Amino acid sequence: MTSTASSSASSAAPLTAVVTGASSGIGRASAVRLAADGWRVLAVARREDRLASLAEESGCETLAVDVTDDDSVAALVARVDELFDGRLNAVVNVAGGAFGQEPVAEADLDAWQRMYEVNVLGAARVTRELLPALHASGRGDVLVLSSTAAQGAYEGGAGYNAAKAGEHMLASALRLELNGAPIRVIEIAPGMVRTEEFSLVRLGDTERAEKVYDGVEQPLTAEDCADVISYALNAPHHVNLDLVTVRPLAQAAQHKVARRAGL
């Protein structure tokens, strides 16, 4: 995909964005892509060493932020005020993750709570605190990275299904609440994406994580998802992509994945 409206950033002041979860995967790729598009990007995550590497590569501003912590998010708001004079064009909520793959009968409720806190409450906290800056810009976007896990349940996925479904409903309700305001609410729901950490964090074992992609020809990459995010944010502001579901060609549905021997 190519940007359709990034020229607006070059003809006036650059558009501005906060990208959460920017230390790896889709968050990192999105920060890099938006910076390349000409946006001023404040990339945030918990791991400062990875943020330093991102800043060196992309020119993004960075800040260590824990989206589950009120004081940490308050520091983010202060940094937005300092960098962007209290006006912000986009909040890109990527921070999240899946932890564990147990059936409901063996549910690790601490892991479920962690998923809810990071995926749902983290996105809600960051969005709530930055909405005034989005309103002040006169051209705001809230982008939520959910998942196809929000659209269909699967064995061992109930905790993650529930968290991502909660994130979907957060975006859906917010879109209704902001109707008439100059703020779009965009939801991007990826299917199978191969990143360096997602399956490894979820399963805790490199061999098990690699098996998720066994035989799958060209799963999505973080850069594929960043491409879609860039398109959605750079589209003319009267065009709202409410919900974009993006899967690799090999994945027809959650439970239907073409696999070839030897791949």
Rank of each mutant, 00 (worst) to 15 (best):
Leu42Lys: 01
Leu42Thr: 13
Val44Phe: 08
Glu48Cys: 00
Arg50Pro: 07
Ala52Lys: 12
Ala52Phe: 05
Leu54Ile: 11
Ala55Thr: 13
Ala55Leu: 12
Glu56Ile: 05
Glu56Ala: 15
Glu57Gly: 04
Ser58Met: 06
Cys60Asp: 07
Glu61Ile: 02
Glu61Arg: 13
Glu61Tyr: 15
Thr62Ala: 11
Thr62Asp: 06
Val65Met: 09
Thr68His: 07
Thr68Tyr: 06
Thr68Gln: 14
Asp69Thr: 04
Asp70Leu: 01
Ser72Pro: 03
Ser72Ala: 03
Val73Gln: 05
Val73Asp: 12
Ala74Pro: 00
Ala75Met: 01
Ala75Asp: 08
Ala75Phe: 00
Ala78His: 10
Ala78Glu: 14
Val80Leu: 11
Asp81Val: 03
Glu82Asp: 15
Glu82His: 10
Leu83Arg: 12
Gly86Lys: 13
Gly86His: 12
Gly86Leu: 10
Arg87Gly: 13
Leu88Ile: 11
Ala90Tyr: 08
Val92Arg: 03
Asn93Tyr: 03
Ala95Asp: 02
Ala95Gly: 02
Ala95Cys: 05
Gly96His: 04
Gly97Glu: 03
Gly97Ala: 04
Gly97Ser: 08
Phe99Arg: 03
Phe99Pro: 00
Glu102Ala: 15
Glu102Ser: 13
Pro103Val: 08
Pro103Thr: 07
Val104Ile: 14
Ala105Asn: 00
Glu106Ile: 00
Glu106Met: 11
Leu109Gln: 02
Trp112Phe: 15
Met115Trp: 05
Tyr116Arg: 06
Glu117Lys: 10
Asn119Met: 08
Val120Trp: 09
Gly122Leu: 03
Gly122Pro: 08
Arg125Thr: 10
Arg125Leu: 15
Val126Trp: 07
Val126Ala: 12
